[in-house]
Write a protein that binds this DNA or RNA. Structure first.
Lengths: 179, 179
DNA sequence: TGGTGCATGTAACCTGTTACATGATTCG
DNA sequence: CGAATCATGTAACAGGTTACATGCACCA
């Protein structure tokens, strides 16, 4: 369901081909809902079959320009306005933390450190992204920019506390093992 | 892969039946890696087939008591020590934020508020969980308690910033729409 | 003896990943 | 002309969800 909506939403913001969408996924939305090439093309065909999007033009190399239809727009609004049945939260990194007691304490500490490093790396990547958005769009502020920026802000804040938390946990573990 | 390890890990901490594991998933690990009943039983059979766990006892009602084998333990350590190929991060709530520009601004703001409320509710649930753990296990502190507690702390901190962020975003949106 | 909880299993379906496959166009 | 990029598709498989199905054991 979610990928369906993600594609529909991106097309609603701006029409384009599967190839175009793929790039837009990689740039921004892939951070909250990644999609593979194969999955996207399949989904676009399904969306077209159910009349939620339509082909407005066929260009060179069989390029299909898609656009959201009225029923597609309605479908998206329905999903946006009824935030239920969202897929459950899964976090492999945290699962690993849960099982870290099975590793010798120095390896566990090392893992927590790599978590902190990873979070910091993401943080820096997000900061660059933010700066490039802010530089690029300082003037023409439309709504979709605002929300993309808000989602990015979420990533920034969460990754920052994640780094802090991992450091805290590593230190706490070290203090424990010294006793 | 991850569920396989989650089951293996829980069994390594304490042997038991599928039914036992299911309860343990719901209580704690389900917060980072949920599993359905059907999935778990299937996985346990696969694990037994590949010799990573073994049946040590068959009780009433066909109850199978499982225990991790040596090769199962090795498999788990391998996964723990090599944190790569983790499944990608997906967040339906944040996807919705990305597409909120398609909604009228007051509905968008309402959604951000429900996000804040949801985060706060989780926060309270996690605080209760923390208190019950701290009360229950104040004395016999073993390593697996430490890491379960650390994972919980992660949830607490992340949900706290999530609530703050959602409030911030809702306010920023309101300020924008007034201009 | 009847309800609740214990205990496991199966089948259909949907989502997502990896790998393979093909070909047109553009630009240097 | 050759390489990079544009552009789409298919097939096999792995992981996960929902719904259905069955039956024993225990306790009041």
């Amino acid at each position: 369901m979610s990928l369906r909506i993600a594609a529909l939403g991106l097309l609603a913001q701006h029409p384009g081909s599967g190839y175009d969408l793929l790039k837009r996924f990689d740039e921004t939305m892939g951070n909250v809902w990644p999609a593979t090439q194969s999955q996207l093309y399949g989904e676009l065909n399904k969306l077209a079959d159910s009349g939620l999007i339509e082909i407005t033009d066929v260009g060179p190399r069989g390029r299909k320009e898609y656009q959201v239809t009225e029923s597609g727009h309605a479908e998206m609004l329905r999903w946006l306005a009824s935030p239920q049945n969202d897929p459950p939260y899964r976090n492999a990194r945290l699962l690993r933390v849960f099982l870290l007691s099975e590793l010798p304490s120095d390896q566990a500490r090392a893992y927590l450190s790599t978590l902190a490093d990873g979070a910091k790396a993401d943080l820096e990547r997000f900061e660059e992204l933010r700066d490039s958005i802010d530089r690029h769009l300082a003037d023409k502020q439309d709504d979709s920019d605002f929300f993309a920026r808000a989602a990015l802000e979420y990533g920034l804040r969460v990754r920052a506390v994640e780094a802090e938390w991992a450091r805290w946990a590593a230190d706490a573990l070290e203090a424990r093992s010294k006793k």
